[in-house]
Design a binder for these strands. Structure first.
Length: 451
RNA sequence: GGUCCGGUGGCAGAGUGGUGAUGCAGAGGACUGCAAAUCCUUCAAUGCCGGUUCGAUUCCGGCCCGGACCUCCA
């Protein structure tokens, strides 16, 4: 087994990964706020971390993967106010849509998928510990984290408190001692979700939920914390501050991983800019595996510009892999290809790993069943190539349609035999118009759908 | 304004202190009635200027350009 190296965003260095407990590698990834369908940028993050977890499961005997669902948030409240749909209905519906979308792109469910609203008790416990430790204070019904009480504040994102004040675009609330202090708990009016607390009826601030849920399911110190690079500050910086102050002497997350943003025409895909496609939008244009391949074709840390051209190339690459698997059936129980695994262990270098896939496909196309087996095995680790090749090429089977296609092919073969090529080409063009592509090989004519 | 990340062939996208992966596209060829698929051959790149070095795309400095964060965001 190769050593695993990961780029730790806190040190900005590639480091050898050594889990605290190899029998239980613990990973926390910031999950979605559920008020709308996930867009492709969201999906990219969770797909990268899905591959990470698959790799960890291959390397270590035990992994606990926790990914939360944020079901209390002002954006949810705003959506409910705008649409009239009750908050609970929005979170239940979009939470289920999120899970369905993850499944459709091939992301395995996490081991624990906790909801924020089920962990208010833990959040209140943490806030009380922070107040007791002198790291938080109550003011005007709010509880705020005192940034000045944590000397390390800014260490994760590489900022100093001065940096933060210099260009601050925020209006500083009057009850804050420091401009950088952030809300742990805030008062909630009767028409908004709220829970009883020592500070009155209220709801949690944005960051405390992740501190509470990671603590509850992974303990005060764990191995890997992942999320989008846009969460580095303030979300992760604040999460870290809360957790380290609530549990003095703990490590919180030992390695921080941040994925790059998905872009459209050079700009970050985001809901606020309105330049987003939901996964479902893209699924209407290309098969799920092609989308997944596209998302893995760039390194998780770099930005990835989405384009229809890229999507088409991804589809062609998957075509090629399935063609190799179809032409040369994989040997049973193949070992994991070594170079492929080494590439993934180099900070999840999926582009290099994919280059290995192409090499294996070449050998498989030349008839090497071991290479074909390796291709299948490697694809599996990426969450790809799990279908039967015939299913990929022909899609859902429909006996009536298939029989009609077979009849047309038989008619074309007869025409070719009679050297009536005009008729043969007409038949082929008619099928192509229906999305059915023919391939004449030495052993006869086969067909596939132009997915 | 501050902090951070990046600029590699036509496009996508890795790696590396010593003749620059991989895929797509392009060119030529094989196969085919023609396609498709496959195979063979091939063209083609390290933003700019300095520095360190025997040697830099890789390390350092400056500049230019792009992006992210500093406000909700994967």
């Amino acid at each position: 087994m190769p050593d695993l190296f990961l780029h730790n965003s806190q040190t900005r260095k590639r480091e050898l990964f050594v889990p605290a407990d190899p029998t239980n590698v613990r990973v926390y990834v910031c999950g979605p706020t559920v008020y709308d369908l996930p867009h492709l940028g969201n999906v990219r993050a969770f797909t990268n971390f899905d591959v990470l977890v698959r790799l960890l499961r291959h390397l270590y005997p035990g992994v606990t993967y926790v990914r939360n669902i944020t079901d209390v948030d002002d954006k949810i409240n705003a959506r409910a106010a705008a649409s009239g749909e009750p908050i609970g209905a929005i979170t239940a519906r979009t939470g289920a849509e999120f899970q369905a979308d993850m499944a459709s792109i091939g992301n395995l469910p996490p081991d624990v998928e906790p909801c924020a609203t089920a962990h208010i008790t833990e959040m209140i416990m943490l806030i009380e510990k922070l107040i007791a430790g002198g790291h938080a204070y109550a003011a005007e019904g709010h509880v705020l984290f005192a940034v000045a009480s944590f000397a390390q504040y800014g260490a994760l994102s590489g900022r100093t408190p001065d940096d933060l004040i210099a260009g601050a675009r925020i209006e500083v609330a009057p009850y804050k001692r420091d401009a950088g202090d952030f809300v742990l708990w805030k008062p909630s009016p009767p028409d908004l979700p709220g829970w009883d607390s020592p500070w009155g009826r209220g709801r949690p601030g944005w960051h405390i939920e992740c501190s509470a849920m990671s603590w509850r399911y992974l303990g005060d110190s764990f191995d890997i914390h992942g999320g989008g690079s846009d969460l580095l500050f303030p979300h992760h910086e604040n999460e870290r501050a809360q957790s380290l102050c609530a549990f003095p002497g703990s490590a919180f997350a030992r390695v921080w991983l941040h994925n790059g943003m998905l872009q459209v025409n050079g700009e970050k895909m985001s809901k606020s800019l309105g330049n987003f496609f939901t996964l479902r939008d893209v699924l209407a244009k290309a098969p799920a595996e092609a989308i997944r391949f596209l998302l893995l074709s760039a390194r998780y840390r770099s930005v990835l510009d989405f384009s229809d051209t890229g999507l088409a190339e991804a589809r062609d690459a998957i075509n090629r892999f399935y063609r190799a698997l179809q032409q040369t059936p994989p040997a049973p129980d193949p070992p994991m290809p070594e170079q492929f695994l080494t590439a993934l262990c180099d900070d999840l270098n999926t582009p290099a790993a994919i280059a290995e896939l192409h090499g294996l496909a070449n050998e498989a196309l030349a008839g090497d069943t071991a290479a074909s087996g390796g291709l299948k095995k490697a694809g599996d680790l990426l969450g790809l190539l799990h279908q039967a090749p015939a299913t990929w090429f022909r899609g859902g089977t429909d006996d009536t349609v298939d029989a009609a296609i077979d009849a047309a092919i038989a008619a074309r073969i007869a025409a070719r035999k009679a050297r009536d090529f005009a008729r043969a080409d007409t038949i082929r063009a008619d099928l192509a118009a229906q999305g059915v592509l023919l391939e004449d090989g030495p052993s006869g004519t086969t067909w596939r759908r132009a997915n």
